[in-house]
Simulated scan of single mutants.
Amino acid sequence: MVIPVHDVNPVRRTPWVTYALIVLNVVVFLRTPGVVSTPLGRGSLGELCRLEAFTDRWGAVPRELIHDRLPALVPTGGTAVGPQGPGCILGPPGYDKSPPLSVLTAMFVHGSWLHLLGNMLFLWIFGNNIEDRLGRVRYLLFYLLCGYAAGYGFALLDPSSGTPLIGASGAIAGVLGAYLVLYPRARVWSLVPFLFFIPLRLPAWAVLGLWFVLQAFYSAGYGVGNAGGVAYVAHVIGFALGALIAVPLRPGTRQPPEPPPRVRPGPWQLR
């Protein structure tokens, strides 16, 4: 998996919406029970039960989206010891939840440090240029639209699932799809694994094209929506919508500067 680090694609204005989205995601994460204490979100049973209750309340559950109602029993965040050992307690929901609104809240909930940092890295690198091209208001609407399409698309493909879909991946995938269409030749400094990570400057079409191919390949199994798995099909849907929306914007898009040509040293040059 190629890890992007920085793109060579300057912007004309400060991407305040991208910065605000990153800050909001981080703030919500720091207030999420059970994930801050360990790097991978693994903790005690009590922490895991509280995290399960939190993601079930604020995440987008496919069967809730399809049927527009809550189940009779949901995780409460408590623990108990039963015949098969300790586990999380289920009970009637003690809160009101709007399934359509849960798609929005789910975009800001992450299940581990790795989940958060991976999403924010991609948003930091590629979001500023899409915001610069669309403008702040249209960019925010675009981001949310891709997130909603990914959430409901995942639910339609797996309507009986009770696993919460969380994370900004679907919305960010839309940003990546738009970037691929608008700036395919932009250079992206990336870490390429080959025995160890080698920094290379690759075209965006190679970095993001490979990312999309991997997501499409993994989506054959539809993935899982919670912190323990990845909803690859949601990534594919968000990416495809973002790319589709960006197609009519490509003719008027200012392209990044071309990298300087490599000059082969002559006999008069120091080697």
Rank of each mutant, 00 (worst) to 15 (best):
V2F: 13
P4G: 06
W16D: 13
W16P: 08
V23L: 15
V27Y: 12
V27S: 12
V35E: 06
V35T: 13
T38R: 15
L40Y: 08
L40S: 02
L45N: 15
G46E: 02
R50C: 02
L51G: 06
T55P: 07
W58E: 00
I66S: 10
L73E: 13
L73N: 15
V74A: 06
T76G: 08
G78E: 12
T79K: 13
T79P: 11
Q84A: 15
P86F: 14
G91M: 01
P93T: 05
Y95M: 08
Y95D: 09
Y95E: 10
K97H: 10
S98G: 09
W113Y: 09
N129D: 14
N129L: 15
L134W: 04
G135I: 00
R136H: 03
Y139L: 00
L141R: 15
L145R: 13
Y152T: 01
F154Y: 08
A155H: 03
G162W: 15
L165E: 02
I166V: 12
A168R: 02
S169H: 12
L176M: 07
L182N: 04
R185Q: 05
V188P: 11
W189M: 15
I198K: 07
P199R: 07
L208N: 02
V213G: 06
A216I: 08
G223F: 13
V230L: 04
A231Q: 08
V233R: 05
I237A: 09
A243T: 04
P248R: 00
Q255E: 09
Q255Y: 11
P259N: 12
P261D: 10
R264C: 03
G266W: 14
W268V: 05
